[in-house]
Amino acid sequence: MIVAKRKPFDEILRMIESHRKVLVAGCGTCVAVCLAGGEKEVAVLAAEIDMARRLKHEPIELGQTTLERQCDREYLAQLDGRAEAYEAIVSLACGVGIQFLAERFPKIPVYPGVDTCGLAVNQDVGWYEERCRSCGRCVLDRTAGICPVTLCAKGLYNGPCGGTNRGSCEIDPEQPCAWYAIHERLKGQGRLDCIRAITPAQEWRDTVPRTLIQPGYRKPEKAKA
């Protein structure tokens, strides 16, 4: 899932310092699961903002809401006619949701309340580890299910580099060498031939915004509002 972490409170407070009526909008999907931007985190942030502003004798009127998802129009539509009552919105959704919300209400400043950190697995409550950079060209078939783009510090397709050190990466002894792990797992599966062939360099197509249309679907001639 997408993971994010709450921005420092001072940073959020500075963003909204000129506003007197602000909506705090959470997202009930990925950021709720990773404990950064769901209903509870919205309530905590709203309480923090309220207390800080009252203590500064600059009281603020706040709204709080958590949409099912901020990356779907049908849920954003629930704010139509209500968001306009606010001077600004602080969104606790991932970067995708924040942008889609800002696009829906172009006259209202939308501020990020979280830093989106990537696509990660849940190792334990509150502990997430990145596994995918959504590069658009998956090589996990050849790399024993271990992503070299994400887990190798250099993102090498044909590793390891000279810095591999008894299973660790040269950047940090605590950081496993992805290519050592790939080699060991492939060896265990008797599939070492998978990495004998050279994998060509990644195309830099991920530097432009990508659009995905699933098979059986097509892009509407004009996106519905």
């Binding site: 009252r54 603020i60 009127e61 709080q64």
Partner: peptide, 16 residues
């Protein structure tokens, strides 16, 4: 508590 003298102004916007 200095917050004792004022009340929060927070409205919960329920999903439509």
């Amino acid at each position: 508590n200095p917050l004792k003298n004022s009340q929060p102004a927070i409205r919960v916007e329920e999903a439509a």
